[in-house]
Amino acid sequence: MNITDKEVKEITARVIAALEDREDSGEKQSDKNELDATDYPLYKKHPEKVVTPTGKTLEDINLENVLKQKVQPQDFRITPQTLKMQGEIAKNAGRPAIQNNLQRASELTNVPDARLLEMYNALRPYRSSKQELLEIAAELNDKYQAPICSNWFKEAAENYEQAHKLKGDN
């Protein structure tokens, strides 16, 4: 391997910078525009940031409004915006995988319950043909603007084909 002294010096400088950086912050500083542990829990610290899918505030969620039918079952749902905030909090606490899951989840908030259950069942082994999985992928993308979940189905379709988990493979 041919590496010049100059290159070694450069690398050394970078290593030192990285070490000093780590020393300073302990952990990576989160983007100031993003939420982090200091904003948590939202229910206590930022109730004003949380709304229901029909635009109600947390203050509106009370017994009186339930009894008056002003609050409906669909109000007890999380919105993509709230999932995004929780995703930022998770990521900034060092858990990017949770943020990824919450991103997928935020895409699914608009899929009706019954359809979501059908989609899950279709993804179970030996339930669907490759074509059927790709159709759901298209539906997720086109009807529900859910590109990440759409890719999830495409990826599954490929993998199920190779691993023989499609309809009729058992």
Binding site: Y40, P41, L42, Y43, P47, V50, T52, L58, I61, D75, F76, R77, I78, T79, T82, L83, M85, Q86, I89, A90, A93, R95, I98, L102
Partner: peptide, 9 residues
């Protein structure tokens, strides 16, 4: 379930 606080670890 609206606030999602308890989705955290």
């Amino acid at each position: 379930k609206i606030t999602g606080d308890y989705l955290q670890t």
